[in-house]
Write a protein that binds this DNA or RNA. Structure first.
Length: 495
RNA sequence: CGGGGCGUGGCGCAGCCUGGUAGCGCGCUGCCUUCGGGAGGCAGAGGCCGGAGGUUCGAAUCCUCUCGCCCCGACCA
């Protein structure tokens, strides 16, 4: 090989990526840079809190719309409960408070006064009872619905709220783990244990379907081990995603709370035969961390790739103007296309800014817009559009008639959605390995090149050597997959 | 809260070891040529070097203390 060809090969190897470092070079840094490049969020002045920028929030709004519809289809009604919870409420359930105490933000004052030394303000007006900022709302919703439920006729009661919650986190990361995050929390109450358990399982199904079909994120459905359970729950069900770096992400959870919260909050009802009974409750939630899961599942070295169903824009139209005489006509042609697409329920963004064309193109790539459309004089004169798919790139660049494009765009987006899911599923499956013994597991986790999760016999959970495995390699049991009927456990690193 | 790394214009960095009052790339502003996968020229704007003390004639640079960020753990959605 000549020096020249060696040089050329080297250049090819280091093909310029829109995001540096690449995923392979430094995954955590890549993740943060994708968020920055896509203009989705940034850190807030308060550690652990984030500012969700319009493009990132638009993803959340699409997420909300799709999930909210599914929740309502289950017969759940939305409501809103307060941010502040009396300390006495949360203190009632010992196991629950034990689980959350360390991460509760506490409000102790209700007034600010000038500091004695004249510099700044200090808290004054101490509250007779401190309040906590909700880390979750089981207690206040339990206390409230205890007043609403008196008869078996009041059950089932199904409530959901879209809210922010706060958990004082040690190690925050944008979207994946923030002190304040956005979520929905559902709280259902039933007359029987069978109903509450079936409900917890049912809501997990809703989450799994939503993850796969809307977010294009493959998930494993299963049950948490007792150690990993929600504080106070009888059973915690989870969907786990395996991200591109092989770590697992608990993506949605559903808890069968049994009578734990009914007992502490006094959710009692009179049954048909006149006896006083305690209700059985569930709770279930999915949060803004999924936006992080979305990035870590679909992003590549050129930035974000949005699954069409949550993409803020399905199509970005980039008018290309070489000569000012054409400008008005080209923009007009582009606007006409935009209107046509909007009539097809396509979310269209027109980029008529005066940025340079390559900057517009790369901006759209980094934001992960599924389809880029370029409109210049050639398209205008021939009644065409030129379009490129984000997931395939320049090889998909096609010029065809506007009619042909409008006829296929919906199917094209649906196809992209499906292909993104299949690609993610292939990766996920490749990262799930079987281990036949704890020794084999130790071997796997000690190799630096090993990425992914291990599936092993659930009986290993009882062995002392398993605890050592967890400690030595910072891995945890993620779940006992339903598919294996509780006989297997998935173990690995997690976010 | 432990272990490691880092704080220098909007972003990424050099300068620090061997003190002399700040530089590079990208971005930004203006003009011209450009524009279909990251264009070029010329002219500009922008930083009391995270903060507070100290040493010194003089500190981005040396010392002490602080604050913040990132990574790896413990905790967790």
């Amino acid at each position: 090989m000549t020096a020249q060809s060696a040089q050329k090969k080297n250049n090819q190897k280091k093909a310029k990526t829109a995001i540096t470092p690449t995923r392979e070079e430094n995954f955590p840094e890549w993740y943060q840079n994708v968020i920055k490049a896509a203009d989705m969020a940034e850190n807030a002045p308060v550690r652990g809190c984030m500012i969700i920028k319009p493009y990132g929030y638009a993803v959340w709004e699409n997420f909300q719309r799709e999930l909210d519809r599914r929740i309502k289809d289950e017969g759940v009604k939305n409501a809103y409960f307060p941010l502040l919870i009396p300390l006495s409420y949360i203190a009632k359930e010992a196991e629950h408070i034990d689980g959350f105490a360390k991460e509760c933000a506490v409000v102790t004052h209700h007034r600010l006064e000038a500091a004695p030394d004249g510099k700044g303000l200090v808290p004054a007006g101490e509250l007779t009872e401190p309040m906590i900022i909700r880390p979750t709302s089981e207690t206040i919703i339990g206390e409230t619905i205890a007043k609403w439920v008196t008869s078996y006729r009041d059950l089932p009661l199904k409530l959901n709220q879209w809210a922010n919650v706060m958990r004082w986190e040690m190690r925050p990361r944008l979207f994946l783990r923030t002190a304040e995050f956005l979520w929905q929390e559902g709280h259902n109450a039933f007359a029987t244990a069978e109903e509450s358990n079936a409900d917890a399982r049912r809501m997990l199904e809703v989450y799994a379907e939503f993850s796969r079909n809307v977010l294009a994120i493959p998930v494993i459905e299963g049950e948490k081990t007792p150690e990993e359970r929600f504080p106070g729950a009888m059973a915690t069900y989870t969907i786990e995603a395996i991200l591109q770096d092989g770590k697992a992400l608990q993506s949605g959870t559903s808890h069968d709370l049994g009578q734990t919260f009914s007992r502490s909050a006094g959710i009692r009802y009179q049954s048909q035969d006149g006896a006083e009974e305690l209700a059985w409750t569930t709770s279930w939630g999915m949060s803004s961390r999924m936006v992080g899961g979305l990035i870590m599942t679909h992003g590549d070295d050129d930035g974000m790739q949005m699954p069409p169903k949550v993409a803020p824009h399905h199509v970005v139209i980039i008018p290309i103007v070489h000569d000012d005489g054409d400008r008005a006509k080209i923009l007009d042609y582009a606007e006409t296309l935009a209107r046509r697409l909007k009539e097809l329920n396509i979310r269209v963004e027109m980029d008529a800014s005066d940025r340079k064309t390559p900057d517009k193109l790369w901006g759209a790539i980094k934001q992960g817009v599924p389809v880029r459309v370029e409109i210049g004089r050639r398209e205008m004169e021939e009644g065409n559009v030129t379009h490129t798919r984000r997931d395939i790139g320049r090889d998909s660049k096609t010029t065809e008639s506007t009619d042909a494009f409008c006829n296929k765009i919906t199917a094209m987006l649906d196809g992209m959605q499906e292909e993104m899911y299949q690609a993610a599923l292939t990766r996920t499956n490749a990262m799930l390995h079987d281990a036949k013994s704890l020794d084999e597991a130790r071997q796997f986790f000690s190799e630096k090149s090993s990425i992914g999760q291990l599936r092993m016999d659930a009986a290993f959970l009882q062995e002392d050597a398993f605890e050592k495995l967890q400690k030595d390699f910072a891995v945890t049991p993620r779940c006992l997959p339903f598919a294996d009927e509780g006989k297997k456990v998935i173990v690995g690193k997690a976010y």
